[in-house]
Each structure stands twice: as C-alpha cells, then as structure tokens.
Design a protein around this nucleic acid. Structure first.
Lengths: 201, 201
DNA sequence: ATGATTCTTTATCGATCGACAAAGAATGAA
DNA sequence: TTCATTCTTTGTCGATCGATAAAGAATCAT
C-alpha cells in the first residue's frame, strides 16, 4: 500500500515554487521555469501537486501562513488598534523589502494581469485582499467600541484607507523603493489615526 | 511612392489595443486577443505597429496622454499644492472607476508580473511610476518653498506617501471597490497635508 | 498603361505553453 | 518471493505563443 517513497522534499519544493511565483507571478512562471527552479522533472511536479494552478494556490497559502502572516500576528499581539495598524504596516514593509525574498506582496502582485482563462486565480487572490481589508476594519471597529478611537470616522473608511496604503506599499516595494523611505511614509500615514485617538482609554 | 492606402483607422485600432492591454496586461493579452479585439489579421497589426511590444508601448503612451494625463492637468490647473494633490487623487479615482473603461491604472497594473523575457516592459513601466512620484514631490517642494506648507516634513516623504496612496487606489479600483469608498478614503488621506498647511499665504 | 510601392489575405513557421502516457525502479504487504 | 502501489524517467502530446513569407489587390508617379 505504500509504494516507492518520494525522493524529494515536497515542502522544500513548495517553497521554491512560492519564490518563483512570488517573483514572476502566476502566468509569468512557466512549467519550464518551475522545472528548473524546483530541480524536478515536470511529471514529478504534477504527481506531487496535481497542476500548475494547484501548485500556485498551495504556494500562496504557504506565503500567507509564513511571510504574509504579519496581519494576524499583529492582531494577536498588539493591544490597541493604533499599535495594530502600525505594526501591520511596518511588518509588511519588512517582508516586502527583505533582500533574501522577492519584493512586494505576493497576494497583491502575483496575478494582477491575467489571461481570460485564468480569471479564477485572479478572483481568488482578490478575495484574499478583501479579507485583509475586513480584518483591518474589524480591528478598527473594536478600537472605536473600546473607546480608543473617536467614532466620528467610520471604521470602514479608515480600513479602506490603511488597506490602500498597504497595497500601495507593495507596489512601491516591488519598484525597489528602499524600506527606510517606506517606513518614513508610514509614520506620516499613522497621523491619520493619531488624530482620532480619544486619549481616554 | 504612396502605395495602397490602409483600410483601417490606426488610431482607433490603437485605442482598442490600449483597452485590451489595460484590461489583461501585456502578457495577458495574446496576439489572438488583439486580432479579435482590433478586428484585424495579425499581419496588418504587425505592418502598422511593428511588434506586440511596440504596440503595447504606443498604447501606454496613448493612455498617458489621455486618461493618465490627470496628473499634469492638476499640475497646470491647481494653484496650490494642497489642491493639486486632492485633484490628482480624485481625478485618478474617476479614471480608475469609469464604467466604460478598464479599472485601475494601466501603468500600475499592465505589467506587474512578467516572464523574464519581458523584463524590459516591466522596467519601462516602473520608470513611468517613478516619474509620477517625482512630479508629486516637486509640486510639494514648491508648496514648501512658497510657504504654503510647513517645512518640517520633507517633500520626498510626503511625495512617497501620496504616491503610495495613488498606487493603492489603483489596486483597490481594480478589485472593484466603488468610487464613493475611494473618495471617502482620500478625504482621510488629505488630512495629512491639511495638518501641514502653514495657514499664512 | 506600366511599374514601384504599400496594404491585405492566406497559410504557416519554429518555439513554447501546460500536461501526460508509458515504462522502469523502488518500496511495503502478502 | 510475488504483487500491488507509488515514484521517476523518457519522450511527446495538441494547443497556443509571437511573428512572417508569399501572393494578390489597390494606390500613385511616370
């Protein structure tokens, strides 16, 4: 029932695939690219991952549970909405500009332009971006409920605002803007929230 | 010396190509897509535009002189840095969400992920994004020089900030976020600049 | 009218795309 | 040891990629 054991490490192969997709995007990475990046003949890749699309989806999930997990980590570890947002943005910058990893956010940049036949992948990533937005909005809503933030600006608007900054950071990082500049810009962006601190809590 | 006249309108064909590339990106738009979108056999396209890459570059230039010209227009028509930035962002939203055009910014989204062989196109678009940043920075620098803006935050930082918001708006528009939400977020983003108005002039 | 020139049409080029068939090799279960 | 199972290897599939050759059609200059 067991059969011949796989000779390569599936997790390591998935990491290499993630890097390839992260760098070149879904359609920009061909099977030939994957064969050379993973060091595996294509039938071995298909045997282990089913299809290029499924490999991509697994790679994105890996990205989200590793590099892309800063959002949920900030949510768990930061006690205030103010600190959550800043932590989120600054951790994002660190990930987007790490010299040993592809630049920018994989979820933002891996499938922005796609042929018609891959619209499914495109929408799947868009959903994940929307989830990021929802996460931020919910945390801000809690901040208002807790009395940390003044309620005069809706959490949806503030959430849209910081989500937009987050996505913009990915584009900027991908263009090679150094992280110092991105951090400086985040300092400025945080003043929007500072102006809405109730000062009471 | 004249030869047979061309039977189709080159400018109209270029517009259709711009829409196709704007929607699907450079690599996401195949020659077959262009043949059907332009209604022209591929040899006619090659005769008129040389290559797919050259057609794309012409399409981007067309985009910049039409839909993407809001930045230079804001620069020419708005008397203050404050008004320039808001006009820039709000006009951008209008373009990015026009129901009769593809969503988002063509320069931001038409070549974010690319195969290795098309890195040239990718870098060419990145340069154009950098030019937008420079434009914004220069206008802010003038605003500081004129005494409109307090000099305590450098124009580079503020420019990076609004460029990042602009790029983020493109991602959000492409994801289908309605323009009302984007305008609301811009209102919030403008407070960063409001806090830096000297109030003197 | 004729010839040079340019556009249009038809047919197709080699390369690459994602994906897989078939056979050989290595394992565990019986 | 035998067999079912699974992985690896080799070779290749049809479709599509961007791009063009070659021939016919339409224009202008002479």
């Amino acid at each position: 029932m067991a059969g011949r054991p796989r000779e390569f490490d599936r997790d390591q192969a998935l990491e290499k695939a993630r890097d390839a997709f992260w760098t070149r995007g879904y359609e920009g990475t061909s099977m030939a690219d994957l064969v050379s990046a993973l060091g595996l003949a294509s039938p071995r890749i298909y045997a282990a991952f089913g299809s290029k699309e499924n490999l991509f989806r697994e790679a994105v999930v890996l990205y989200e549970t590793r590099e892309g997990s800063f959002a949920t980590r900030a949510l768990a570890e930061e006690p205030t909405a103010r600190r959550f947002v800043e932590r989120l943005l600054r951790d994002a910058i660190e990930v987007y500009t790490r010299p040993d990893l592809p630049r920018g956010c994989m979820v933002v940049s891996a499938a922005t332009n796609c042929a018609v036949e891959n619209d499914g992948v495109l929408r799947w990533l868009a959903e994940r971006r929307r989830a990021r937005n929802t996460l931020i909005v919910e945390r801000l809503r809690k901040g208002i409920r807790d009395g940390e933030l003044k309620p005069d600006t809706g959490p949806e608007v503030l959430g849209d605002y910081y989500t937009t900054v987050l996505f913009g950071l990915s584009v900027q990082a991908r263009d090679g803007v150094p992280k110092e500049r991105l951090h400086a810009l985040v300092t400025v962006a945080m003043q929007v929230l500072d102006a809405r601190l109730s000062g009471k809590p």
